[in-house]
Nucleic acid binder design. Structure first.
Length: 502
RNA sequence: GGCGGUGUAGCUCAGCUGGCAGAGCAAGCGGCUCAUAUCCGCUAGGUCUGGGGUUCAAGUCCCCACGCCGCCA
């Protein structure tokens, strides 16, 4: 059986989960469900990034210990994923002791290779903005214009510069690695200047301690190094026995990742630093790392101070998690920025889910019950609907491979539309008992639509099959055969799948 | 300050290597009546952010400007 290893970034717990976290995680869940549907063995990893000074600061502000804060916030994430039907295979936390031990071992291993070496970090730091300045920025903070402090501290560097040429070569030979294409150009461009080595320690108490025997008082491991390696610890990588034979079963089965989803803000970490670390560890690189776009709110960046943050719990409460999953993937192509407004949400909900999909299922359900006593009639010729639905698999598979959820849903919508059109053309309400085959075809269409939509709308898919009395039929690829529904199957009355929003 | 992305109809987006501006939604009109006032059809709607340039021909290629997004331990 083919395997499929999929990751989201682990989310930083200094603040509450927001729509951006939901976006990545829903997309990953849809991919995971789709690949399971295709018959692959899937490992879907997500989790939380819990170290670093911002978490420590957030805890202090809340009057909690870092430990208390991270535990609380993690629970919020778990609650949200539960609400949104996210079926991950592992939820990793960087505060787990196993993870921390592995990080330390990897640090030591890289030190033995000469990939990590001691040095002094020098640079400018803006205290009010809490940001380090790039050397090209000069001495004054580009954000606030104020003068900055000069810093000079002992650290350990990762020899990133050593991998510059190999990274270039890899990008050239593996165009699939960086997605979408636009971002590939950007990352390649980052390699046109010499890569500076990367400081791997920070002066912060709330972090993974340096390994035993490595000196550096008050220093902990840089939170990004700690975080990136979750993709290895998540499948129980064993740095002490790098030989393939001594690796964990999980690692042997799933490494490397097939797809890693990230937001476009962290491409530098995932397209340069992360593969360089893997090169240093002599491990195969992920096949595809996709940087998706951002959700804006009213065409502006979401921020607490502007008061335009979309709150996922509240949104699920009011419109349901299915609608939110659908909207995020249907509204905007995955690689682009989107604009999240309640108005746009309502429009898409009403037109796609209530009027087209929901109403299609509802109107023919009603016809079967009123004209055929609720029993699915006998088929004759599948016609256009049979052709339309059965030729869908290769098209939809291609879209999912490209992480084109937008195009995937567009294609499914065309079938819904064909169904509504067909129903109007055939007008079974005029034909009475002669309309049997027409209604049979709509049963099959709804059933197959429920299969295709299941990754995006898992609850709705089941609701459709339940009202059609089809809970016993298969739901894998074998479900795509036209004609599986047995005539005589009992259709039961059901409320609209998506009540219209007034 | 540096690097990159993006800007096409009221809204969300297609327009591959330059060759008569497209779709869905919203709007207007007509039809149907099984259905969640839903569905089906038709119509209208654009100085392709602005300014220069290359070309027989530019939304598409080049230069400049502006808006927005991201990154720069």
């Amino acid at each position: 059986m083919d395997k499929y290893y999929l990751t989201t970034p682990i989310y930083y717990v200094n603040a509450q989960p927001h729509i951006g976290h939901v976006y990545t995680t829903v997309a990953a869940d849809v991919l995971a469900r789709w690949e399971r549907f295709l018959g692959k063995e899937v490992f879907f990893l997500t989790g939380t990034d819990e170290h670093g000074s911002k978490v420590a600061a957030a805890a202090e502000q809340a009057g909690l210990s870092p430990r208390e804060l991270v535990d609380q916030t993690v629970q919020r994430y778990l609650d949200l994923w539960n609400l949104l039907e996210i079926k991950f295979d592992r939820f990793i936390r960087t505060t787990e002791t196993d993870h921390q031990k592995i990080i330390q071992s990897i640090f030591s291993a890289l030190q033995r290779n000469g990939d990590i070496y001691p040095g002094v970090y020098e640079g400018h730091y803006c205290v009010p903005c809490e940001r380090y300045l790039a050397p090209a920025e000069g001495v004054d903070c580009a954000d606030c214009g104020r003068p900055t402090e000069k810093l000079s501290e002992e650290t350990y560097f990762f020899r990133l510069s050593r991998y510059q040429e190999r990274l270039k070569k890899h990008f050239l030979e593996n165009p699939e690695f960086i997605q979408p294409e636009r971002i590939r150009d950007e990352v390649t461009n980052m390699l046109s200047d010499p890569l500076p080595d990367l400081s791997l320690t920070r002066r912060c108490r709330w972090g993974v301690p340096l390994p035993d025997g490595v000196t550096g008082s008050g220093l902990t491991i840089y939170v990004w190094f700690d975080a990136l390696l979750n993709y290895l610890t998540g499948v129980n990588y064993n740095p002490l026995s790098p030989a393939e034979a001594n690796q964990s079963e999980l690692f042997k089965r799933f490494w490397p990742p097939d797809v890693q989803l990230i937001g476009k803000d962290i491409i530098r970490f995932h397209h340069i630093i992360w593969p360089a670390i893997l090169m240093a560890l002599n491990l195969p690189l992920p096949k595809k790392v996709f940087g998706h776009g951002w959700w804006l709110s009213g065409n502006e960046k979401m921020s607490k101070s502007k008061g335009n943050v979309v709150e996922p719990f509240d949104f699920c409460g009011r419109y349901g998690s299915e609608a939110l999953r659908y909207f995020l993937l249907a509204e905007v192509p995955f690689g682009m920025d989107g604009n999240f407004t309640e108005d746009a949400f309502r429009k898409r909900y009403n037109s796609d889910l209530a009027n087209d999909l929901g109403n299609l299922v509802h109107r023919f359900n009603h016809l079967v019950r009123t004209n055929f006593g609720g029993k699915v009639p006998v088929p004759r010729d599948g016609g256009i609907l049979a052709r339309k639905t059965t030729e869908l698999l290769p098209i939809l598979t291609k879209k999912m491979e490209n992480l084109d959820f937008f195009g995937f849903l567009e294609t499914v919508r065309e079938v819904v539309s064909t169904g509504n059109h067909y129903l109007d053309e055939e007008a079974p309400w005029r034909k009475g008992p002669n309309s049997g085959p027409v209604l049979y075809n709509l049963t099959e269409t709804s059933r197959i639509l429920s299969i295709y939509l299941e990754p995006v709308l898992p609850r709705t898919a089941v609701l459709i099959r339940r009202q059609l009395g089809l809970m016993d039929l298969p739901t894998g690829k074998e479900a795509l055969t036209w004609g599986l529904t047995k005539p005589g199957t009992i259709v039961t009355e059901a409320p609209p799948l998506f009540p219209r929003i007034k």
